[in-house]
Design a protein around this nucleic acid. Sequence first.
DNA 1: CTTATTTAGTTACATATGTAACCAATAAAA
DNA 2: TTTTATTGGTTACATATGTAACTAAATAAG
Lengths: 172, 172
Amino acid sequence: MTDEHQPLADKPRPHSDQKTRLKLPQFLPYRLATLSNRISRTIAALYSERFHLSIPEWRIMAILGDETDLSASEVAERTAMDKVAVSRAVSRLLAKGRLERHFSSTDRRRSVLALSPDGRAIYREIMPLALSYEAHLLAHLSGEEQAALDHLLQRLESLDLEMIKTPQHNQS
Amino acid sequence: MTDEHQPLADKPRPHSDQKTRLKLPQFLPYRLATLSNRISRTIAALYSERFHLSIPEWRIMAILGDETDLSASEVAERTAMDKVAVSRAVSRLLAKGRLERHFSSTDRRRSVLALSPDGRAIYREIMPLALSYEAHLLAHLSGEEQAALDHLLQRLESLDLEMIKTPQHNQS
DNA sequence: CTTATTTAGTTACATATGTAACCAATAAAA
DNA sequence: TTTTATTGGTTACATATGTAACTAAATAAG
């Protein structure tokens, strides 16, 4: 694949053959990032302007619609957001009246978050949109493809992605 | 945890059964987004502080390392970044001396971008890191899994993700 | 030509995000 | 207990990003 039919004495380029080149469109991290971005934007378009919700805000509502009375740090865990992002999104949601917050009586630092009636109503409107969008996406894949996708995501999610030890190179 | 093994006549919750709930950790767009983020951050850690490069900056260098003398808009196309992001990253790269720019003689609006010698040197350092990280990731997958992954990405990339027509709902 | 239109890129402004510093409450040590 | 460390969350600051408005060059129309 590297050299289609490369005439013998005529190298494509002296300094960089296919093996040492990085082809962005075939680079896995790049592909995942662009695909995921396109999907996220598309789905955000389903609710962002209609409900004035940002992606992190919706994530929090989505979690609290499913499991109620979580603390901010529990929300952070489950949404894979960091605590600062959660804090900010929560305060916006509180300001908009979509969330209710009180604090644990046993630990007065710990917040207890839940959707407000208003938030629940919005949740019930958006959630089917989100699910049907996902269904719409998956509908383009066969059963086996769907299974394979799920399997691969599980595999990749389970990797710890641990850093490769940087080839020693103390040139800093 | 709510009700482990639910006795027959005892509905889990009147208002939301599994079918109408959104389980974030199983929601495809969410899974893609978090996976891709983890990978991007990990890989960015390989070069960001060592070479003082942001992700968009590296993307541009990666493209120009592969194909030289592109215009800003061609870079934008190939990196899937928008032209504003490209403009900003390009000006940072110029400032750091990693890029050279001149303008087309036939169309004086059109920029012609290329890595500077310095940029090329950096490219040659980073690129193997990026590739070996990818290899490291893929090494955890079997040959079939890798093929399936590539196939699925191609499938998903080819979808136009077109918006589902919003169920009419003029409540704005 | 002279005036629209389109195209390439940049700039402005408002908002979002990340990192680190911070405050308050709890838990652990001394 | 008083001191010290840890944990839950928020705030500040610097940087990044998105959208829209804008400049300049090139085309197309009149």
